[in-house]
Design a protein around this nucleic acid. Structure first.
Ligand code: FES
Ligand code: FES
Lengths: 157, 157
DNA sequence: ATTATCTCGGACTAAATAGATCCGCAATGT
DNA sequence: ACATTGCGGATCTATTTAGTCCGAGATAAT
């Protein structure tokens, strides 16, 4: 069970975008340089966030990415699931109905208790991530960070 | 983020072993037949559970696997982490210290807030899984299941 | 004690997936 | 018109996962 490494990239990119003035954008190249990441691959992953409706992109010169909604309405869960998909890590294939020990269909009307427990754990994980918004993240950063981020992203010396 | 398919296999195998008489064992071949699984691969995964101290194996004729401890002291978390490893799916590589936007070391004394939140979600997941033991699972099965499992595993008609 | 047989145990190979890159196209602002 | 930027697809490689194989060791009957 492993999240793609780009998860960390995108969380930090989103947090950086949340610190921009409303209406301002940052290009994929800028973000890649900002974190020293493979630009092409990062661009591809950013597209996934756009498709998921978390980011909005404007093309053309001085274009780039910005948040599609206020930072307070973007949760960590939405970001993570945008890059990794929303499916549960545990995939029940109804093993109880196969092989010599197969249960009669009559006893399989209710979902398997093991699948239930695994799904419950996944729900707990999702609930925890959904409890934090990007605004919470920005608020928890050192007070000096936002202005510095803004300067470096928009192209200071 | 995906758990190996063998996770489901092993959870069900462990649940089946929990239904055996104390001291009785089931071989990898029996379990594989019971669920219609690739025997060799299942055997490999069962070894992981032995290494993790969840199962105990006895070799030689009439040997096989059994629980290493009472079912009430084996949690789902221990089983899952035995097969998939115990590391968090989110791996923080301290991206905040790299690239043009690198933070000064002074502001990196405390762990990154994003890494914290992701770790917290993982803890919630682990807590949920640790709350259920194999004994709970067996208790929740249909009342007819235990005897049937015992019969089929030990080789009845 | 020997031997036949059954078990785990680890080494090994093949398939799938993730990571990463590239290029052409469409859209936008100068 | 032109430079800049996102978008999508095709492609290539590295890593992980899935699956197979055969040998070391233990048991029980002879
Ligand atoms: S049948 Fe899939 S978890 Fe039990
Ligand atoms: S530096 Fe790793 S999560 Fe922020």
């Amino acid at each position: 069970m492993k999240l793609p490494v780009s998860t960390e990239w995108l969380l930090h990119c989103a947090a950086s975008l949340a610190q921009l003035k409303s209406g301002d954008t940052a290009s994929a190249a800028q973000l890649a340089q900002y974190f020293d990441l493979p630009a092409a691959y990062l661009a591809k992953q950013l597209q996934a966030l756009v498709k998921a409706g978390v980011l909005a992109a404007t093309t053309g010169p001085r274009g780039g990415f910005r948040l599609a909604r206020p930072a307070s309405e973007i949760t960590l869960l939405q970001l993570v699931e945008a890059v990794d998909g929303a499916s549960s890590p545990y995939e029940c294939r109804e093993i109880r109905q196969q092989g010599r020990g197969a249960l009669p269909a009559e006893e399989c009307r209710t979902p398997c208790i093991l699948a239930e427990k695994m799904a419950e754990a996944h729900r707990a994980w999702r609930r925890s991530l959904a409890a934090t918004s990007l605004a919470d993240i920005v608020a928890a950063l050192p007070p000096s960070a936002p202005s510095r981020t803004r300067l470096r992203l928009t192209g200071a010396p």
